[in-house]
Simulated assay, not measured.
Amino acid sequence: MPTEAPVLFPLAGKAVKLARVLAAPSYARALLRTRTAAAVEHEALLRRLAPATVIDVGANKGQFALAARRALPDATLHAFEVLPGPLATLRRNFDGDASFTAHALALSDAAGEATFHVASREDSSSLLGVGAAQEAVFDVREASAIRVPTARLDALGLVEACVAPILLKLDVQGAELQVLRGAETVLDRLSHIYAECSYVELYQGQALFPEVRAWLEARDFVFRSAFNTHHDPKLGPVQADMLFQRAPA
């Protein structure tokens, strides 16, 4: 059975991050009530980008969404999470927040159903099978597989109804290009895309960062910077959060 990821932080900066979580009432509440550690490392960037709407794809328990809410108290948040356990925790973390909506869907490039690969750490689950490098670097392996509902973002009518500027955040464990292909007709409504991308194949058949970057650049997005890079002693850079900006018209 999958196990819930423990509330642990990277060794580098662990104490500082924990102190930041405990110092913010909303973060401390989520940590104590639901064992959800807010992704405080994204706060500064979110404030700088200042989107009116955040679409959080692969929201898990709301780690990123908690940071978005604290950084952007007036923003509208839409979160997509398909695993029942994390989805229930996500909704609990935002209970009473009228500007937050959770969607029980896996976004992809086709509507219907798909196999979802549940990992030994639920926040590493994916539409793609867990690869050998994921196990070697993060000690994560596939625990089970379930069928889940899928949808294209550009078929939901959601983006068209959102207030601009809109930030699309992707943390979908190797399925970034599938989600982007399923959003192709609404990309021009987005101001920024913030996607966790890999330099090495952590999931079977995933598109690596150069392919994701080329796809977005062909559609008028400019790569701005990489954040929160994870390094492996043997493999070097493994993955990072990549920021893309819509090119001026």
Rank of each mutant, 00 (worst) to 15 (best):
A5L: 05
P6D: 10
V7R: 07
L8V: 11
F9T: 04
P10F: 10
A30N: 12
T36M: 01
A38L: 09
H42M: 00
E43G: 08
R47G: 11
R47C: 15
L49N: 05
F64S: 10
A71I: 05
L72P: 12
H78F: 03
F80T: 05
F80L: 02
L87Q: 09
F100D: 07
H103V: 03
H103R: 10
A104D: 15
L105F: 13
L107G: 04
S108G: 06
A111P: 03
R121G: 13
S124P: 01
S126K: 08
G129T: 05
G131P: 09
V137R: 01
A143K: 07
S144D: 14
R147W: 00
V148W: 09
V148S: 10
A151K: 03
R152A: 06
D154I: 11
G157R: 09
I166S: 06
L170C: 02
Q173V: 15
L180N: 08
R181I: 13
I193T: 09
Y199Q: 02
L202Y: 06
Y203R: 03
Y203S: 08
L208W: 11
F209Y: 11
F221A: 02
F221P: 05
R224S: 04
T229I: 03
P233L: 08
G236L: 02
Q245M: 08
A249L: 09
